[in-house]
Nucleic acid binder design. Structure first.
Lengths: 139, 139
DNA sequence: ATGAGAATGAGAATCATTCCTAGATTAGCA
DNA sequence: TGCTAATCTAGGAATGATTCTCATTCTCAT
């Protein structure tokens, strides 16, 4: 999985250094977007470096930022790496888990989005569905 | 429209002061969630007061915060005032516009959400759909 | 091995947001 | 209407997340 990322970065003249590799590997290992402090725990890397690595990887299109209802910024691998998916967000603690729709569900969602966007005459570039629930700890 | 809000606050023992009224009226006048600085322009009120009013109105369930893909916090009137709706977000500047689905579309979305959530065994508390596009200024 | 360019670490700077306090406003009541 | 107690506001200080800066270190092509 690290292979296409390495090529992607190389193609853009961006080095795939140890620090960046560590960030990508940490993000590969988890099941949803993680905040800088959550990542910091796993990585023992200075925050400034973490932020910088995330910014570089973000510009390169390898990671994307996600902002849940609690306002915290969390990062995850881009969809071309991890696949298109949606998010399950806890209303209490803000923790986020990935949720993939089935191909059939995704198609229905697409239709819905296209239909609604067409009504106001905009071209859809992307869509994101967030399902809010309450995780077990927050009940 | 201001009437039910006044009663809602009164019922909770929260005063509907001039400052809070101004915030609510500003939010009634616009077509999507607005950030504190966007509101500050319209209101000539110190930021600390704006934040405080928004916090009070937020606790009271009159306004809710929204966090778009650019990470900026934007505020809007709660759904019981403005009605359930979704958001159209510009990938360039982050500006957000409200977008209401038709009742029929909303129902299809509900179904989809319930179905997907059921698969991972969570109880849905709410859902949010975001359609990303590119506004005219950002083309 | 060497040099040029890029990346890193550590801390300072910035920005949004929250907190604090003294003074102003408000509602309820005489 | 005028008084009182409670609540609210303005303004600035404090906080916390994020970004910037710069001196040092690393990488890669020679």
């Amino acid at each position: 999985m690290t292979e296409p990322i390495a090529r992607h970065l190389e193609a853009r003249g961006i080095r795939y250094t140890r620090a960046r590799r560590a960030v990508v590997e940490a993000l590969e290992a988890v099941d949803g977007p993680k905040s800088v402090s959550e990542l910091g725990d796993r990585l023992a890397v200075p925050q400034s470096s973490l932020y910088r690595s995330l910014a570089v990887l973000g510009d390169a299109g390898v990671v994307v930022a996600h902002h849940g209802p609690d306002g915290t910024t969390r990062f995850e691998l881009a969809e071309w790496i991890r696949g298109h998916h949606h998010h399950l967000v806890c209303a209490g603690c803000g923790a986020v888990r990935d949720l993939a729709l089935t191909a059939e569900e995704e198609e229905r969602l697409q239709e819905l989005v296209t239909e609604a966007a067409g009504r106001v005459d905009v071209e859809v570039e992307d869509h994101a569905l967030e399902i809010v629930h309450r995780c077990e700890e927050c009940r």
